[in-house]
Amino acid sequence: MQHPYVSFEGVTRAYPGHVVFRDLWFGVNRGEFVCLVGHSGCGKTTVLNILAGLDAPNAGGVIVDGQEISGPSLDRAVIFQGHALMPWMTAEQNVAFALSCRHPGWGKAKLRDAARAALEKVGLGQAADRKPAMLSGGMKQRVGIARALAIEPKMLLMDEPFSALDALTRGALQDEVARLVAEANQTAFMITHDVDEAILLADRILLMTNGPDARCAEVVMNTLPKPRNRATLHKLPGYHALRDHILEFLLTRSRTLAGTRPADWDPKSPPDVRPADAPLPAAAE
């Protein structure tokens, strides 16, 4: 078996009097897209911040590419929930700032050209000279995506990147991210509340129970064929079984499983499930 690119090994994060999650183990393989799904407050952002190096675990460690991480790295680019663009810079300058961190030796002209090219890729060539205040929510998030991809990270981290957008814009951006990630065979880790988003993008979906003391209760393997797109996703066989399984987890089991650990619970390998592969109900008779 291939060694995972990222592996969480017994990670615990606690605040005084409050354990967010305990003894968390999971891996992300190279080129794999993993989604983390769970209710608000269960610790998803905390997981992502630890992986980004912005936060540190109280116990356990995170191994990336064979090395334990000790802080943020250009190899793991973050697309933030709020767009987190610098409002005093134009779209192009925001991307160029990231590029200048990646390539300190580059001159102004080279940075500008590379920033332009990155913005073209997300369809924002026209808006390069506008400041964030003059961009729509969707355009701002596109700049955030361009900024993260411009530095050619080994891994992309996304914290509910589209949750603040309207449904149409969200759909367009999901397709965009799916395309860009597939083109670059990008390893990605994403937090989301949106079940369809997870099914569209993820190869594996981690289901987290409610906090406090949350755990990763189940790993859902998304066996629907790729490439997937939003228009035809719901027609794929197995889609409904997959969707129902995740929804059912979010609606009931995330709550009933919270705080409990079965006697035979092995935190190192939460059960894999393949709801989309389940035999079709006996309709064929």
Binding site: L54, P72, V78, A84, M86, C101
Partner: peptide, 27 residues
């Protein structure tokens, strides 16, 4: 905080963060 986090994830360094992020933000 989010701008500082952006600078950190970009490994921007103290001087670059001070002059490109904190100074314009506080100007």
């Amino acid at each position: 905080r989010e701008w500082l986090n952006v600078a950190r994830t970009l490994e921007a360094g103290t001087l670059r963060t001070a002059f490109r992020v904190i100074l314009p933000a506080a100007a």
